[in-house]
């Protein structure tokens, strides 16, 4: 039916045919020519995305293997790409930065290899990986925003050596990593107390309950659990119970978490750039597998640390690994 609908629209049909021809020809052409056009789609026009974009360009241009040309396009993906084609800058790759940009790309009609960057692994796995966009082209990859569970356990184990019971709340988006958590729990000998957050459940009460039985709380990125509204209550409760709260972003540590393990946009941008560079260098026809960020940062909230220092044992050495 969708095909019939498109046929019934002469203009759309024409555009579709045109794009198909262009995609096929351009892909071949791209690898043969020196100029590589990369279309970057940013979720927002904000400093983190700018930092990501700049670091991406910087990483690619630094190689000087081929001349790379970046085209930052707006959310109207189809029109922007058509425009690039008309102007002779048909993109060879698309980099979608952030969930919002990713969501837009998924709705577009093109066959250009796309790297989804700055998105949680759960999001890619749940929403992108199996989407029609990626199934059809097989040119989809990702650089996740979140840290691998094992890394987090590793750091917690090191930083909070006294933490025997680690409380974790999983939401709808993060429940898939339950097994990874359990594996890491075993590996690092940290008892995990998992709680699943249900819709309409009072997270504060849940956290309070969890905190009473845990030595520390680990936040797994899940918008249904950790968002702007719930964060304060969760942090206050953990603080009230005098247990450290380990989070996943700079903002979270600033909001009151003891420390956060996270990768900066620049780190992710660089890793995305390297992923592209590797393709161009080795002339691979397929994109690599999605990757967790290689580089990360552990940031501590000194105030919280001062407050909790009398109650916890915190190993500063984790801060060296950045």
């Amino acid at each position: 039916m969708p095909v019939l609908d498109k046929i019934r629209s002469p203009f759309r049909l024409l555009c579709l045919l045109l794009c198909f021809v262009i995609t096929l020809t351009s892909h071949v052409y791209a690898r043969e020519k020196n100029n590589i056009n990369i279309a970057v789609v940013l979720s927002k026009d904000t400093p983190p995305y700018h930092a990501f974009s700049e670091q991406l360009q910087k990483t690619l241009t630094a190689t000087q293997i081929q001349k790379v040309k970046f085209h930052t396009i707006d959310s109207d993906i189809n029109d922007s790409i058509s425009t690039l084609y008309v102007s002779g800058n048909a993109p060879d790759f698309i980099v979608a930065a952030g969930a919002h940009a990713s969501k837009k790309i998924l709705t577009s009609d093109n066959s250009i290899p796309t790297i989804f960057s700055l998105i949680p692994s759960s999001y890619y796995k749940n929403r992108i990986q199996n989407s029609p966009y990626c199934k059809r082209k097989k040119y989809c990859s990702a650089v996740y925003l979140d840290q691998p569970v094992e890394r987090q356990f590793s750091i917690i184990k090191k930083g909070l050596p006294d933490a025997k019971h680690l409380g974790i709340i999983l939401g709808p988006s993060s429940k898939n990593i339950k097994n990874e958590i359990l594996r890491a729990s075993k590996k690092y000998g940290i008892n995990v107390i998992l709680e699943s957050a249900k819709t309409d459940e009072n997270l504060i009460v849940l956290v309070d309950h969890l905190a009473r039985s845990s030595d520390a709380l680990l936040a797994i990125p899940d918008h249904d659990v950790y968002n702007r509204k719930t964060a304060k209550g969760i942090l206050l409760n953990s603080y009230k119970n005098h247990i450290p709260f380990v989070a996943y972003s700079h903002s979270f540590v600033r909001a009151g978490a003891l420390f956060s393990i996270y990768s900066t946009p620049e780190q992710i941008g660089e890793q995305t750039g390297r992923m592209l560079m590797e393709m161009l260098t080795h002339s691979k026809n397929t994109l690599p597998e999605p990757e967790f960020p290689d580089a990360y940062k552990v940031e501590i909230n000194p105030a919280v640390l001062r407050s909790l220092r009398s109650r916890i044992h915190f190993n500063d050495s984790i801060l060296d690994k950045q």
């Binding site: 979720s43 927002k44 983190p48 952030g98 700055l118 918008h223 702007r228 972003s249 700079h250 903002s251």
Partner: peptide
């Protein structure tokens, strides 16, 4: 509300 996402594109 407390901002907890560095790259906030969903909220």
């Amino acid at each position: 509300e407390v901002d907890i996402d560095d790259i906030d594109d969903s909220g």
